Simulated assay, not measured.
Amino acid sequence: MATTYTIAELAREFDITARAIRFYEDQGLLSPKREGQGGRNRVYTPRDRTRLKLTLRGKRLGLTLSEIKSIIDMYESPKDTVAQIDRFLDVLAHQRRTLEQQRADIEMSLAEIAVHEDECKRLLEEAGVQDAPERNAA
């Protein structure tokens, strides 16, 4: 018999909640079979497990769920591999630009914080206040 997984097993394996898995199912990323009385029990296949793994990897890359679904669906219906790879490269390039802009924004914010910190320290020194260790802990 083929290997199957319960929602609890997948949640435990990937350290996410069952609610998150149900959400991904609602978004069309997973499609478990239903078994038991009234179809209450979800039964996940190795295909579902792989799709969940790829979904979580895509989220770590910062992709949207629709981008993740598009990419996963492309690879499950291989027609034109070159077109699929080109599409994936486009998505990755877009995400790289987004992350590089976020990094630049963070670096600018950190530089502004450093200027404010230096100014505060200078004001404290002028006021004759000793630089207390607890003030540097932050």
Rank of each mutant, 00 (worst) to 15 (best):
A83G: 07
Q95T: 06
N136E: 15
G128E: 08
A127L: 12
R47Q: 11
L30R: 01
T55D: 02
H94R: 15
G36K: 09
L10P: 02
L123A: 14
L99D: 09
A8C: 03
K53I: 00
E35K: 11
K121T: 09
S109W: 04
R57H: 09
Y24A: 04
K121N: 12
P78Y: 07
R57K: 13
E9K: 13
R103N: 07
K33S: 12
S66I: 11
R135A: 13
K33M: 10
D90Q: 14
E76Y: 07
R135K: 14
G128Y: 06
R97V: 03
D73W: 02
A18T: 12
E76R: 08
E100V: 09
A127T: 07
A138Q: 12
L10F: 03
M74S: 11
L124Y: 08
R12S: 07
K33Q: 12
A8S: 15
M1V: 10
R42H: 03
M108S: 14
M1Q: 10
S66F: 01
E35D: 06
Y24K: 03
T50F: 02
A18N: 07
I16L: 07
G38W: 05
R122V: 04
A132T: 11
A132V: 13
T98N: 11
L61T: 03
E112N: 13
Q102D: 10
I16R: 01
L89A: 15
T17H: 04
L92G: 10
V43I: 11
I72W: 01
G58N: 04
H94E: 13
Y24P: 00
L61V: 04
E35L: 06
D26H: 05
E117V: 11
D131E: 15
E126K: 14
L110R: 10
L63T: 03
I85D: 05
L89D: 15
L92K: 13
I85F: 02
R22H: 01
I85N: 04
K69Q: 06
I16V: 14
A20N: 08
M108V: 06
V129A: 14
P78K: 10
T6E: 05
R103M: 12
D131A: 14
T17M: 05
K59H: 05
Q37E: 13
C120D: 09
A18Q: 11
T3S: 09
R122T: 13
D118C: 08
L61C: 09
S31T: 09
D80W: 02
M1T: 12
G36S: 06
R47L: 07
V43R: 08
G38Y: 05
E126F: 05
L99C: 05
M108P: 00
R51F: 00
G39Q: 06
L92Q: 13
S31N: 12
G128S: 07
E76N: 05
E112P: 00
S66R: 14
T81G: 01
T3H: 11
A93G: 12
P133I: 08
R60W: 04
E9A: 14
I72G: 02
P78M: 09
R51M: 00
N41H: 12
Q95I: 05
A104H: 10
K121H: 11
R135S: 13
E119W: 08
R49L: 02
I113T: 10
P133L: 12
K69S: 03
Q102N: 07
R87W: 08
Y75F: 14
L123M: 14
A93S: 15
D48Q: 02
L10R: 02
A18S: 14
V115C: 03
D90G: 15
A18C: 11
I7T: 08
